[in-house]
Design a protein around this nucleic acid. Sequence first.
DNA 1: CCGTCTCGTGACGGTCCCGTGACGAGCCCC
DNA 2: GGGGCTCGTCACGGGACCGTCACGAGACGG
Lengths: 226, 226
Amino acid sequence: MPRLLIVEDDDRIRLSLRLALEDEGYSVRDVPTAEAGLAEHRAHPADLVLVDLMLPGMDGFDCIRAMRRLGDVPIVVVSARDDTHDVVAALEAGADDYVVKPVAVKELSARLRALRRRASGSGEDAPKVRRFGEIELRPEAGEVLLGDEQVHLTRTEFRLLCELADQTGRVLSRQQLLDRVWGYDVYGDERLVDVHIGRLRRKVERDPANPAHVLTVRGLGYKLSP
Amino acid sequence: MPRLLIVEDDDRIRLSLRLALEDEGYSVRDVPTAEAGLAEHRAHPADLVLVDLMLPGMDGFDCIRAMRRLGDVPIVVVSARDDTHDVVAALEAGADDYVVKPVAVKELSARLRALRRRASGSGEDAPKVRRFGEIELRPEAGEVLLGDEQVHLTRTEFRLLCELADQTGRVLSRQQLLDRVWGYDVYGDERLVDVHIGRLRRKVERDPANPAHVLTVRGLGYKLSP
DNA sequence: CCGTCTCGTGACGGTCCCGTGACGAGCCCC
DNA sequence: GGGGCTCGTCACGGGACCGTCACGAGACGG
């Protein structure tokens, strides 16, 4: 579930954007100021950021620049001002797109999709099926094979495995996994991750007590080793 | 000089776009039909494509889809129709952006720049692995290799090594290391650092008694030599 | 050469982290 | 409504890890 961060000071617009984009399948967080947006993005990096230009305190341009320094997350400006000068300035600051309020949700959603396609894939179509030793993951089919026999994973276990697989070899903290698997808005107990990791291991590891792929990195989180 | 292909049937608009974008530093080719555009792109692949939607013969949507099949060149639609339905359809077909005529050249140019930045830049960011002789440090994976075998570090040892690595060659005092590894608010015994340095050496040094990289600077602190 | 200071290291008790089993709630399909 | 499946919470136990201390070796200055 892609994570989207909305930075917009108008409560009504923020809420309506949030609802519309949640319908589109995004896990949304929204904040009313640039400062809060930066803090939020630092704590929970988003896959996409929507930012207004006219904000109290730090303005949208500075917000864009600051986020650019943090990473290359796609940024879309949603502004009331239909002015070439603003568009150019926002894009120069590091934004990827600029749409004018009032926005058609369908168009915004299409632009977000286009941007995500461009930002993530960079062209190469993924081989869709990934192997980790004896574990074979087929996201399309929703299947997992251990050796040559299929194992049944619950939805949560499956998504957990997918998220780990998307970042193979990299450590993901419990909080990151909560964000990605359970969604932004869930402030659950981090121990919840442990339980599902355990359940996942019992299904995809030959020796769950000594996992070969779903590894614990003590004090940091979990990772999937190739 | 980035190569830009313009597919636009209106001669006057095509020419003016061409001149404007040549001024912006693009090497421009222009054609009046989708068929010619595809042929041109096949013969001389462009870095960027501008496509009109209303074209005689094959229309812009088909042109976009056909180009998408050829590669992942960034495509910008330049259309007279300001209609959400068209925007969505164009983006779904594979376009990266959609601007409405008459276009402000400055804005178009800024959008092209933003798109090129995104399209090229998404090539992997630096691998972030650092080497110090036989010691290889992979912060993302939470791993450390000595030679080609992985050594297990505890969280504290790992952070300690990372902090030293961040300031390679510079001496860090015990207090600085306490601040960075254990946090500002911890007023622990400075000797604590010694203990962990020792433990670290036993794991990442071939001869812990005569360390080659994790060095003591008597009276000052420790440093990591490259 | 000797006293003092600094650093390395082994041992040990306490703490925190993680794995796991148990349990109840919600959900869906018979 | 019952049974199976999945999920989230909790508590417990074991072990990894940490911080402290003490002792000894080596470095440095006089």
